[in-house]
């Protein structure tokens, strides 16, 4: 069995922030060193490129970035997709500080999605349904934003408890008895009617970023104990030239997760073609589980299996094939022997 695990610590994610001038040289260098562009966004003459490159080539890439007049920034959350969830999409809950948190996480390199629950409002009546839980669980991590009253925050612990994905709770007061409901708590950010511009607010945003980084680090460590069969960046490289994704007009048609990718093309139309692609001499469908997104059918989730999972499935397949082979074997042998030595047929029988 081949795979990526032996090289899993060799890639580093950095971001180029600069002009479009001579950026083609940067893209060529990334390709030459075997790196991959995770996110590229251009605004007028400015360009930001989040890239995953081999660690030993980082000095060369950094040198070129500086030479062409850009900056290199660390992006600790690159290659992740994070849901920032509020109780509702109403103006009471949504605009600030949820948008500020989402924006800050984007600056750290994550792809963020802001969402509100259908019936998340109220202390006594708030609820989360199974569909919402499934949608949030598709992401690498979730930042759940609650309000200013301690009793309300504690009453809404059940909303968070149902999520399987690592969750950072952001709320105003310090809640009691919520440690088991979420992976981390950042308190001091409640409901506000203004942007988080003050130095104290910025410090809180940085704290949210650090807590998200910590919970993702835990997830990364868990993954490194049983590494993925192939790195998501390699599947991204494989898929980004696939025509339906190449022609897709949605922003970021391929989004990397820690354990796979989200491909923003309809599952029903394209899943077979993607399953039949080849990576390290295997069908992609054998080393990944490809499922439609719970949001709708217009995107699909590609979850990469771990090496042990692939090995286990190989062993199952081998075990299944062995009795079949042993069952088929004597018959085949019989038929051969039948032609050559009819006398032995009787003996075998």
């Amino acid at each position: 069995m081949t795979g990526w695990s032996g090289r899993r610590n060799m890639y580093e994610v950095i971001m180029y922030d600069g002009g479009i001038y001579r950026s083609d040289e940067l893209f060529e260098l990334i390709e030459d060193v075997g790196g991959v562009v995770l996110v590229k966004s251009r605004s007028a003459q400015m360009l930001t490129v989040t890239m995953s490159i081999p660690a030993e080539d980082r000095p060369a890439v950094e040198a070129l970035c500086k030479e062409i007049g850009g900056q290199v920034k660390a992006v600790p959350l690159a290659g992740t997709e994070i849901a920032v969830v509020g109780p509702t999409l109403g103006r009471h809950h949504m605009p600030h500080p949820i948008c500020d948190i989402a924006e800050y996480l984007r600056r750290c390199g994550a792809i963020t999605v802001v969402m509100g629950l259908a019936r998340g409002r109220g202390k006594l009546t708030s609820q989360i349904n199974l569909e919402e839980v499934s949608v949030i669980d598709e992401y690498d991590a979730c930042v759940f934003m609650l309000g200013n009253f301690k009793s309300c925050v504690e009453a809404k612990a059940d909303l968070i408890r149902q999520l399987d994905v690592p969750t950072v709770l952001v709320c105003g007061p310090k809640p009691d008895g919520m440690d088991d409901a979420c992976s981390a708590i950042v308190y001091g950010i409640g409901r506000k009617a203004a942007r988080m511009r003050e130095p104290a607010d910025r410090a809180k945003l940085e704290e949210v970023g650090r807590r998200v980084e910590d919970v993702l680090q835990d997830k990364k460590e868990a993954l490194s104990e049983d590494p993925l069969f192939v790195h998501p960046a390699e599947i991204k490289m494989l898929l980004e030239n696939y025509e339906p994704l190449d022609m897709c007009l949605r922003p970021a048609p391929l989004v990397m997760h820690l354990d796979g990718l989200r491909a923003k093309i309809p599952y029903s139309e394209y899943h077979e073609a993607i399953e039949n692609m080849e990576v390290y001499g295997r069908r992609l469908g054998d080393v990944c589980s490809i499922t439609p997104s719970k949001i709708n059918d217009s995107s699909m989730l590609i979850r990469i299996k771990t090496r042990s999972q692939v090995a286990y499935e190989d062993s199952l397949r081998a075990a299944k094939a062995a009795p079949a082979a042993s069952a088929v074997g004597p018959v085949a042998e019989k038929s051969v022997k039948k032609k050559k030595t009819p006398a032995k047929k009787k003996k075998t029988a």
Partner: peptide, 12 residues
């Protein structure tokens, strides 16, 4: 009844 909430709601 909630000192933190009181302060925040006054500002809000």
């Amino acid at each position: 009844t909630d000192p933190y909430g009181n302060e925040m709601y006054k500002a809000l």
